[in-house]
Design a protein around this nucleic acid. Structure first.
Lengths: 346, 346
DNA sequence: CTGAAAGCGCTAACAA
DNA sequence: TTGTTAGCGCTTTCAG
């Protein structure tokens, strides 16, 4: 966008100064007299001078931009995370390039590659459901690219990480179902390859264990595409509904799986919560308006985003190599609504 | 991200060639022998050479990035639009910077300014609810910055535009309500300053007119903040519900207003559609799962995004100044569900 | 306090 | 067919 842009050179010639003087004056250098500074700055403002960030980047070797990799922005949780990221990034002079993996490993690798082509100063990433191998990130990380993981993290790379308290969220959710009298609690979740699946499964298992309920493998269904595929949720549900000792409650582990399960159960005319209760992770704002209103485990998306970008910027702007890393765990919130409370129905 | 990056210069010295030879070889110039090309390209691949896009941008005066301005990405319609934009942009080598106005004029102006600082090659914008003055865009447009409007457009700037068929969507929606036997149809909409409000209002009015129903000003409520403010929708609803000749149906004009209206009516224990029917513009995927399932007017968000970016790129890459502009109007889709069909309830 | 000049990585006009 | 060189806009030594 260099349409009619005025440059330092223009100012210099107009004022009969050298480019370096103008450059220094503009950056308020001690080497320049107040008088000259004033002249330069006034002229610059009058002529609407804007420094060219590309030239600056080239010189300084950074781009003041960071890359975000998520599965889809078309998801309340991630758009909240992105809002959190942007709220900090812009105020610190960074801009943000958002890319989507659509849960594909291939797309994830491609996006990361593109981001490095784009010379981003760092990457914020939540892994795709398909990703089990993180070699594409490891090599970049080794070369010095700052990376911060959030949501779906990798243990194989030692860097800052931010997650919701998935274990506890799942634990409390399952506990609530047990407290409400449900005994045969099924679990529909994503690929076991990603961190959140494992953490949430642990919380679920622990809650059962605490009540002396045996873990039943048939009650756990994995959707390898994170619920993008309607069919995988459908078949999981079919399995669960036709199984011997059919479950009386379902605990779902991700935004899309939760809402899709509700939709499918409705289509199947299965009464919630009478025939089967439902509770799941989701950040939808419509939980109250659903039929029935949906019991949810809410993740602090905005806060996760804020934390992640702060940590990333701290790495980027650190003078010396960062070697001490931290994993921040933010609490989830349990909202009990009608889909899991037989007593509360109206 | 210039960590250990290899440059053209490195290749040149390693191979005993000049930088220009390498540069030309890499871009497959006719001036370079096949033999040299092969050597250069092989070396480049072996050493994982990546051109520095910043240097290229500086030289070529473009940034291969475009800016998007929307109210919030945390909105199904806009995230679908963005998906459409990205689907084309990336394949054409552009990357995308997303900014949000949160319906504030000030933020919109600021974002646009930031985008120009960032040297974007063009801007895709849907105006904020607060925006009636488009001087901030006009001046940039005059200077030659390619701009394409979508969704909420401005008549004051002559450029490409993409919108849903708001008039017809509203017309069909209102007609459907009339066909279903509703006679006193209220309309809750955004600020009258934005294009979509006017277009949808016209469709609503026309449908009434066609049936010989007088337009009742008291039935139309404007939410100046596009429904971001819960209170403005609340007070609109209170007015409508306490009015003489209380409406028997509400037609809502935007995503947020539609879903919030449903939530509020539920809270107020107003039976939908028995006491009041509801139909509105929204792209939520959960319409079927709501209580009651929600009749909606759906905009082709993905297609709107695709069209907008294609038009923008055509301006950016046009050799000569573009003077002929086009406004594309894409059809909406009406989904009739229970919130507007007394007969269909179950 | 101010200016000349080099250079960030790349492209392209021109020379050889 | 290959090389030399200038320059994109800016920062930053180093001289003056």
């Amino acid at each position: 966008m260099n349409f009619e842009a005025i440059t330092i050179k223009d100012i210099a010639t107009a004022l009969g100064l050298s480019v370096s003087t103008v450059s220094k004056a503009l950056s308020d250098s001690y080497e320049i007299s107040e008088k000259t500074k004033k002249i330069v700055i006034e002229y610059a403002e009058e002529h609407n001078y804007r420094p060219n960030p590309i030239a600056k980047s080239l010189k300084q070797g950074n781009s003041k931009s960071i890359g975000i990799v998520v599965s889809t922005i078309d998801n309340q949780f991630f758009s909240q995370v992105i809002n959190g990221i942007e709220s900090i990034a812009y105020s610190k002079g960074y801009n943000v390039i958002i890319t989507q993996t659509h849960e594909s490993f291939e797309l994830e690798a491609l996006n990361v590659k593109h981001l490095t082509y784009r010379s981003v100063d760092g990457i914020l990433i939540s892994l795709s459901t398909e990703t089990s191998d993180v070699e594409h990130l490891k090599s970049l990380h080794k070369k010095g690219l700052p990376i911060v993981f959030f949501d779906r993290i990798s243990e194989e790379i030692n860097t800052h990480k931010v997650i919701a308290d998935n274990f506890n969220g799942a634990f409390e959710g399952t506990q609530h179902l047990l407290d409400s009298g449900y005994k045969r609690i099924a679990h529909i979740t994503s690929s076991p390859d990603i961190s959140i699946t494992r953490e949430r499964l642990k919380g679920y298992t622990k809650a059962l264990e605490d009540r002396g309920i045996a873990f039943n493998e048939d009650y756990v269904k994995y959707c390898m595409h994170g619920g993008r595929d309607l069919d995988e949720i459908k078949s999981a549900l079919n399995d669960l509904l036709t199984i011997e000792n059919r479950p009386d409650a379902i605990f779902t582990a991700s935004d899309r799986i939760t809402t899709t399960t509700l939709l499918l159960l409705q289509q199947m005319k299965v009464k919630i919560p009478d025939e089967i209760a439902l509770l799941g992770f989701t950040n939808t704002q419509l939980a109250d308006a659903l039929n029935p209103s949906l019991s949810t485990i809410y993740q602090p998306g905005f806060e996760i985003g804020k934390n992640a970008i702060e940590m990333l910027i701290s790495i980027i702007e650190s003078k010396r190599p960062v070697t001490e890393f931290e994993t921040r765990v933010l609490p989830t919130q349990l909202y009990i609504r009608n889909s899991s409370s037989p007593a509360k129905r109206d």
